[in-house]
Write a protein that binds this DNA or RNA. Structure first.
Length: 287
DNA sequence: CCGAACCTGTGT
DNA sequence: ACACAGGTTCGG
């Protein structure tokens, strides 16, 4: 469920509400959540500790408690809330308590040393942060080496951290690039446009507090239980058959690398030749 | 590269 | 009953 904008929204809320508070006790109700510690070890490491910071790396949330950090991935249906939900897998007894809810039980928690966490699993090997200052067009050009389809590259966490299926689709539409386009064929101008689209889409989605697709159990919610707002601004995701907001052409829904992929065949032409020579396809770009 | 698996719920 | 879901990992 959650990609970078959703995780960042949760991070900001957690930091505001819980930073500086002491974790008195940990309750684990789903043993599979813990990847490299036992419940007893987790409790021993964190009980009585003050939450110093809540950070984010890609789609991971990082809770910093002094020398130890708890690194959590929400996967498909995990979320943190201040009230217990229907599938509580863990409770952190701050005042107020923090509940981890996860219908599908895919969520993970690693306990790592704060000093070494960037060099240890699960954070080691993640690609650059797309919203960091250091993420330049040159860095993106390096990310785009190889012939793999652009959408796969954007979603590859070892190439670029934090982008998933929804935002890959939205970014490619904004950049006017076909999802199946071999990554290394992008021109300098296209790389610049893609770089801008990545920043714009992620920034906007964060400003709207992420995307909540439906209202099912496990659908993304903010810490206080509110829905995100960016789903109403989708230009392509889950809009197969609907008119492109830029040119009116029906949005296509296809299966790419096993994932639902949505794009506008006119604004995101498959043939790069047209884009390169700047003719043939007199498309009116989505504004 | 693809599909299956991990789980549960929802929508057709 | 069956397909599908924001993610990741594994095996063929």
């Amino acid at each position: 469920m959650p990609e970078l904008p959703e995780v960042e929204t949760i991070r900001r809320d957690l930091e505001r509400v819980l930073c500086g508070r002491v974790l008195e006790r940990v309750e684990v109700h789903e043993p599979r959540l813990l990847q490299n510690v036992t419940p007893a070890e987790l409790t021993a490491a964190l009980s009585g500790r003050r939450l110093e910071a809540v950070a984010r790396r890609g789609k991971f949330l990082i809770f910093v408690f002094g020398a130890h950090s708890a690194v959590v991935h929400l996967r498909m249906s995990g979320w943190f809330a201040l009230r217990p939900g229907g599938h509580t897998r863990m409770v952190w007894h701050f005042r107020p308590p923090l509940y981890f809810d996860d219908v599908r039980r895919f969520g993970t928690l690693h306990l790592v040393s704060s000093a070494a966490r960037a060099r240890r699993p699960p954070l080691a090997g993640l690609g650059p942060e797309p919203l960091d200052e250091g993420f330049t067009v040159e860095v993106l050009a390096r990310v785009c080496r190889g012939r793999r389809p652009l959408k796969n590259v954007l979603m590859d966490q070892t190439r670029l951290a934090g982008i998933g299926n929804i935002y890959a689709c939205e970014i490619l539409h904004r950049a006017g690039l076909h999802p199946g386009r071999p990554a290394q064929t992008l021109t300098q101008t296209e790389l610049e446009g893609l770089h801008r689209a990545i920043r714009e889409v992620l920034d906007e989605a964060i400003a709207w507090q992420g995307s909540t697709l439906g209202s099912a159990a496990g659908d993304y919610r903010t810490l206080s239980g509110a829905r995100g707002g960016f789903q109403d601004r989708f230009r392509v995701y889950a809009r197969a058959g609907a008119p492109c907001r830029g040119c009116g052409t029906a949005i296509l829904g296809e299966r790419l690398a096993g994932r639902s992929t949505y794009f506008c065949p006119r604004c995101q032409p498959a043939r790069q030749a047209a884009a390169l020579r700047g003719r043939a396809c007199s498309r009116s770009r989505a504004r």
